[in-house]
Nucleic acid binder design. Structure first.
Lengths: 233, 233
DNA sequence: AATGACATTATGTGCATACATAATAACATG
DNA sequence: CATGTTATTATGTATGCACATAATGTCATT
């Protein structure tokens, strides 16, 4: 029997994957250290390191200095959802994108919004409501508060020709954000705008983005009934 | 003015991130090549490569051979959701986990299920229904079909002491899967089990996992009203 | 002008080496 | 026996070098 060699990190990764899937290395098992694997595979330790690191990034391996590398006992599946500009999202589905501004006002936000955005009490934010359409049918309702202390240019934009969604992504940097997915019954108003009965179950995405310590914008996207977010594992 | 040096790949990454956030390098811009950056940062090209590769993995940079590296024009936010074992999920919320098997039968699945799992018509699958509890309150309803042609051992397991969710992750390898998030109105039955009115808006996760060309299991998790999936960007 | 050969360039990767760092085990000391 | 110190070990990473590979540009030939 000839032992095949695994020269590049991808084939090392594949071989490790094979052993995990074949249960030669079971969840929780400690696998040989990098030096030994490098010897076995006939490559440099660097190459093994690259392969194992990639697998650890994907959650399949747990690595700790000195403790060694073990197969993740709980292979936490990481579902990566791409949150793109809505226009792009619609167009990639092969549908015609449409956009309608519903409202644009400066106002003092509800306390819950103000608090989560860490705004001074009484400060005004820019409140935008808009409807995104796919093939002329309602796709998603956008309800957004923009921190005009941070995004000054927003006051000069009327958001008629471009959605706040797209305008912000194009013009405004942010450092990090929080996102939440939930289900919500349609209010009467939402039902009217989205063209569905009140109480319909709707998928909602809440997002809050920050530029360092300052909140940039908080947005709620309410999708039309039946909308799904899909991805592969 | 002294030009600081960036010795390790993390600080190189941070500096690149800073420039992107500060819009010194704007979306779509071509950034200097690795050799030049290495020179500027006072480190090896390998180190720059490591930093840029990591950023490209996160979708912030687009890299092509010869063409160079540019800031992603569509900073597609990638929301990574960790889909863990439900017991772990509950326990990490600091709540007491509970589990209740509702039903376990072998049956021919509805055509939609059979088709999506690519099962021979008429083949039986193992159908499991169970309720997961957090602090004795309903947390999520699991409705699962297991391909017993692939997961033979499942027939010997009664799923009284351990949920199919956890048992499968522990015992059954899979190569890939599909996952979908959606909102759904509670059926009368779901309302009864979850202790909420019918028509309540519920968050649902559908998952289908494969071991190479064979389907392993298809599961629908219906969460109690108000449940949110959260993550950071 | 179209075609194909070839050079150029930026990223991609492998390797040997060195040292850093975290976690653990072994040991010594009170 | 408890506790703090030290040695050991496996992973983490920086570096210089070499070569691979993909994409592009250049140039000669027809």
């Amino acid at each position: 029997m000839n032992t095949p060699t695994f020269r590049d990190w991808q084939s090392v990764q594949n071989e490790v994957l094979r052993r995990i899937h074949a249960r030669e290395w079971k969840p929780g098992d400690l696998i040989p250290n990098e030096t030994d694997l490098a010897l076995e595979f006939g490559c440099a330790r660097t190459t093994v390191n690259r392969a194992l690191r990639a697998l650890a990034d994907n959650g399949l391996l747990d690595r700790k200095r000195k403790a060694g590398t073990r197969v993740a006992s709980q292979p936490v599946a990481k579902a990566t959802l791409d949150i793109a500009v809505i226009r792009t999202e619609v167009e990639e589905r092969g549908q015609k994108y449409g956009y309608q501004l519903i409202g644009r006002v400066e106002a003092v936000p509800p306390v819950a919004i103000g608090a989560s955005m860490r705004i001074e009490a009484g400060d005004q934010l820019l409140h935008i409501r808009a409807l995104h359409l796919a093939d002329d049918a309602p796709y998603a309702l956008e309800d957004r508060w923009i921190n005009t202390n941070v995004v000054r240019d927003a006051l000069a934009e009327d958001f008629h020709g471009i959605s706040a969604n797209e305008w912000l992504l194009k013009t405004t940097p942010y450092t990090h954000g929080e996102i939440a997915f939930l289900a919500k019954a349609a209010t009467i108003d939402e039902g009217a705008v989205l063209g569905c009965p009140p109480q319909s179950a709707l998928l909602v995405i809440d997002r809050l983005t920050w530029d360092n310590a300052q909140s940039v914008t908080k947005v709620r996207l309410v999708f039309s009934p039946g909308h799904q977010l899909r991805t592969i594992l």
